[in-house]
Structures are given as C-alpha cells and as structure tokens.
Nucleic acid binder design. Structure first.
Lengths: 191, 191
DNA sequence: GCCGTCGCAATACAGGTGCAATGCAAGGAG
DNA sequence: CTCCTTGCATTGCACCTGTATTGCGACGGC
C-alpha cells in the first residue's frame, strides 16, 4: 500500500475537516485529535501529513484563501467595471453555506493572525491584491468624488464588516447584499 | 482582612488583566492561571471572583463594550450631525493604543461569539443601538441618495472592516481615518 | 472574647493537548 | 525472493486546562 497516494489531496482532505470544525465550533476546537476524528482517520495520519499543528493551520488558511481567489477570478470574465466589482464582492460575502463557512474560517484566522504573525502575511497579500484590482476598476469606470484607492479600500472594508456582522448574526445576509448595492450606488450612481 | 473589598473593582482589575492578555497573545492564551499571573494574584482569587471561566469572559466583554459606549456618548454633546457621526465612529477605530487594545479584544470575542452564542447577545444589542443612532443622525442631516438605515449599516460595517484591517496590519491607522472621511464625503458631500 | 463569615491560598484531579517514538504492513526496486 | 522505503497506527509523555475541595487567617458583630 505504498507510493500510490496523492499527498496534496490528503492534505486538502484534512484541511477540509479542519474548516468544518473551525466553522462549527471555532478555531479553539481545532486539535490534532479532533481534526483526525472529523476526517475519519487516525491522529497519526494527521501527524504524518503535517509535522506540526502550525503547519496544518497555515496550509488550511492558504487553501481557503486560494479558493476565494479562484472563485473571484472566475467571475472576472465578461463585464463592465461596475458589474465586475459587484460580482467580485458578492463572492466574498457569506451569502450561502459554503461562503458562510469560509468567512467563518477567515474570521477565526484573522483573530489568530492578529497574534501570530506567521499567518498574517498570507492574508495581507490577498487583501492587497484585491484592493489593487478594485482600485483599477474604479479608475476605469471613472468614478468621481472619491480617490480610487480609498474607494477600493472602503469597499473592501465594507464587505469585511458586513461579513462580520452577518456571521455574528447582527445582520441578515440579504440586507448585507443590499447595503453593498447601496454603496455601489453612492460610488457609481444609479444603475 | 475581611469585608473591606469592593467586589466590582476587583473584578475589573481581573478583567483588565484578561484584556491585556487577549490583546497581546490572543483569547486562546486566556486561562485562569494566566489571568491570575498577569494580574499578579493567585488563581484561587480569580476563582473566588468568577465561579467559572465563562462568567469571567462575559464580564470582561461587557466591560469593554461599556467603555466604548461611554466614550462614544461623551462625544455626543455639542455638534452638527456630520461631526457627531464622525466623532463617534472615530472612537471606534483603533487609532491609539487603548482603542487598539479594545478592538483586539472585541475581535477576539467576535470570533468567539460566532461559536458561543451566550456572548453574541451583548455584541448584537450594542451594535443595534449604535446603528439606530447613526441612522437618526443621517436622517437629521437630510442625506440624499441613500436610505438612512442602510447608510448607517454601511458606516458601521465600514468602520468594523477598517478596524479589522488595521489590526491585521493590512492598513495603517491614519489611512483608515482617511477612508472614513472619504465615505463621509460620499454621504454628506464636501465639508 | 468569641464566633462566624468573608477573602483568599493551596492543592488535587480528571481530562485534554502537541509531539516524539516505535511498530508494522504493504508494495516497488534490485 | 529480498530489502527498503512509504504510509500509516499505537502508545507514551510531559504539560496545561477548568474546576472542586480544603484550609486558614483576619476582621465585624455580638
């Protein structure tokens, strides 16, 4: 039974279990044994694929960020700047169960990264990339009354904040989408 | 050595230690023993004032929220709606060390509350109260082009998101303040 | 002066944690 | 067939966790 396993695939399987766990019971419930149980494997196997817990965490976060980015880029194909921006930001909001789970994980990691800088860099670069893209679109659309960079930062912060409020059940998902649209009206004018 | 202690005061002393700890090393570093050590007391004393760890957490979160609210109300005295809104939201952003610490704690608790609903209610009501106040001010200022409730929600989300980005070092504090001002220009027009 | 209660300290305990070490079956390489 | 690497499973260890228990000195009320 040797040699024929896809290491990458196994690691993603474990990271998936970690995500489910983090979303359901918080990052503090993430332990080697719990991840193993959730994935239906032995704790030894988890140790086999991640030499340390931190390595597992970093991998899982990277996986989530990759998924979000990939989904966002899939939207990017055929649209005017405004629709492009809207589509992209809607991908970030927790409007369905998958994205709710992802947002949950990202939030947990944000709190974690605020304390453990080894995780912060990944988050930072993903955000910077997205902010750059948004600013570019705002510039292309020729929005007036606001600096494109600041408009982009504002949009990103808005979506982050909305996600936060939806997750902590202060705000309904559809209201969050409406709030985003309201902001788009402020930036781009009436559709 | 009996009878002459202010129970409330002692609890706040412990909660302060908890805050420092949470801000410096994350909520996961908060344990009875660590809080005791940070406060310079015995773990027995912590147990004496909080029968359970959860009770301690809830108290600490309540204390932080109270402080933020109190500081916000102190601003509210003598100003036009726009300045009032600006002043209030600036109190929420992590622009100095105290507020950075508070934001850190709130973030940690947000991630925690997403999983432990016993903490969520306090956060929810504080946010609702603030949103109501903001909406009222927007209405009083007669902003056009946006529904006051949604404008308020947007502002709150923006500030939350900006705080998040500042904490995770994606964004500098002064840039966050500038982004807030940019949004106020969008809502209220040029000053 | 006695006593009860308050304010705390110390210790014990069962359970969970990350990690290291070891064992061992199953295949491919020679 | 033999070996040796791969892919796990088991077990053990030292440490940390929340909580319960017990002890005990110091005051306030009588």
């Amino acid at each position: 039974m040797a040699r024929r396993v896809d290491r990458r695939e196994r690691r993603e399987l474990l990271a998936d279990a970690l995500m489910r766990l983090a979303a359901a019971r918080g990052l503090e419930a993430v332990s080697l044994r719990h991840v193993a149980a959730e994935a239906g494997v032995s704790t030894g196997m988890v140790q086999h694929y991640f030499r340390t817990k931190d390595e597992m965490m970093v991998f899982a976060l990277g996986m989530v960020m990759d998924r979000i980015r990939r989904r966002s880029q899939a939207v990017a194909a055929p649209a005017a700047p405004r629709e492009l921006v809207r589509g992209l930001l809607l991908q970030v909001l927790p409007l369905d169960e998958t994205r709710r789970l992802e947002n949950h994980v990202v939030l947990a990691f944000l709190a974690y990264a605020a304390v453990k800088p080894s995780l912060a860099s990944g988050l930072r670069e993903a955000a910077a990339q997205m902010r750059g893209f948004l600013a570019e679109q705002l510039r292309a659309a020729g929005v007036d009354g606001v600096d494109p960079e600041q408009g982009a930062a504002g949009l990103l912060a808005l979506v982050d904040g909305l996600g936060l409020q939806v997750l902590s059940q202060q705000y309904a998902a559809e209201d969050a989408a409406a709030a985003l649209d309201a902001q788009l009206v402020l930036l781009f004018g009436r559709p």
